[in-house]
Design a protein around this nucleic acid. Sequence first.
DNA 1: ATCTGGTATGCGTATATCTCATGACCGTCG
DNA 2: CGACGGTCATGAGATATACGCATACCAGAT
Lengths: 313, 313
Amino acid sequence: MTVADASLTELRVFREVAERGTLTAAATALGYTQSAVSRQIASLERHCGAELVERRHDGVRLTAAGQLVLRRVVTVLEQVDAVSRELAGLPDEHATVRLGWITSAGVGLVPQALAALRDNHPSITVMTREGTTPALVRALRAGTVDLALLASAPPYRAPDEETPALDVQVLTERSLRVAVPASHPLARKDFIELADLHGQPWIAGSGTAMGVWPGLDERPVIAHSVRDWLAKLHLVAAGCGLTTVGDSLSDAVPPGVRVLPVRGGSHEHRRILLAKLPRPLSEPAGRVADALRSRRSDNRGLTRQPLVVMLVP
Amino acid sequence: MTVADASLTELRVFREVAERGTLTAAATALGYTQSAVSRQIASLERHCGAELVERRHDGVRLTAAGQLVLRRVVTVLEQVDAVSRELAGLPDEHATVRLGWITSAGVGLVPQALAALRDNHPSITVMTREGTTPALVRALRAGTVDLALLASAPPYRAPDEETPALDVQVLTERSLRVAVPASHPLARKDFIELADLHGQPWIAGSGTAMGVWPGLDERPVIAHSVRDWLAKLHLVAAGCGLTTVGDSLSDAVPPGVRVLPVRGGSHEHRRILLAKLPRPLSEPAGRVADALRSRRSDNRGLTRQPLVVMLVP
DNA sequence: ATCTGGTATGCGTATATCTCATGACCGTCG
DNA sequence: CGACGGTCATGAGATATACGCATACCAGAT
């Protein structure tokens, strides 16, 4: 009864659980039943002789032992994937970089960087996926992305408390603004007073309070919940409500929408971070990181297709 | 049906097979039956979609795909062992060096080097095991030893033809001699004429022709087959036959044995090589290699116990 | 021709692993 | 406060897996 008796399945399941944060999500991602995943984790824990995840009511979190095991499991599965590719004759997936990004990086940052890469380093393939900050942090830890663009808000804590700490770097720091319908009375001025936001209907991200101005002291009226930025902005244009946006979107909003700063209350800033595991990047991944740091200031990326878009549901 | 569906058991069995060179030997080493090993290999091959071993009538040999897979499997199992140790709280087995050696290195080279190490680097633990040159070469490839002392005879070819080639270094080069009973007529002179060896009874290593002077043009009379050097030399002392020894043993033979050079025929030399995989050694392993290269010239190693007794039957 | 290494395979059984269904727990919302 | 929606755990039963045993087979040495 040692970890040497564990099975590769257990390891894959464990990585997926570490990445998804809940057994159920891992199960659907793997095409298993939740119960199967529960048993696999229990079995792996028995093999390891230690609790690997802390069961919580909103999912699971890795214990110290779990983090320890995950680090090894990641490289094990990397090796397995590598031999898989080698046997298939695909020569070295090393030129492929996996990048994860939060939705708000999908407008300026990612397309511009990818466009620059395509021009300067056409041999590099970038596979990208969208996700939330915690999901991407877990994906970094689980080794399924090499780089991740994360969101950070004051007080700018580290993305997670695990060890080793992630390498992070501030890519952009923008002030938060509010998108209002051009026809809205508030759109007549060049800024909005905090007090004017009282009682306004908000368009939030689905499930979260994101999209609502964070300084309000009232219970906000959530008129709509929508993930997609374009849909969100069109709802604003249609006068259905207000929403918050980073000022990088100011140029990219459809007609009928104005993006204005808010006066009064605390200054609300948002950072986009480039994060990676604290180990050296592959050379192509380094190029991608460079491209993200110093992307071109023109906006060709807005109009041309990204290199590759791969979504992992 | 991809290599990702393989099991850790398959990988362990595969490594053992790669190391032992036959399914049967791997089976007994693992405590399985030969049939189980056969199926495991077949299953792994199905998962890999390629032949991994070439079935021969004297065992199996790795195919190109097999060598490819082995390289990955080695690091996979290393990771698994590592997490196993970490979970047990044993902090980093990195200070342990695994050394394999051929029997003829067990008299001067290994004990002297270990004695020197114990004095100069007492924190380094060395686990050693004895084996034949081909077995140790496979063990190097399979990652179960870090360093190996190998035998080499003219024309001094590389230990194997696989890629990447092993790093080898000549540690000693000695002329081959013959051990004769002190009471034997041949022991009266200080050398032996090749012609005098005709018709002599030989004491060979078990199963091999080792121990018989290689320049003979007749079919030798093998009087005894024995692996152990001490037993062999005592058989010589008892007048049961002759055997070949490296001249490094000249000082270590029991009373009643004389070690003499052979005149006539080709000069027979034997090298002992220090071999390793062509990747950087850990720091302690480097120390062990150093100790083997520049061991003390006194013979304390002959009288004191080696650091660690060997494992692995 | 026989014997002695080696590997492959049919068959029966023990074990492991999945699904389904159900239960317990907790935080949220009406 | 009680229902609901989310989570994980677990018992029962079907199924797939992996083992050992016995045997077949094959090539080389005696």
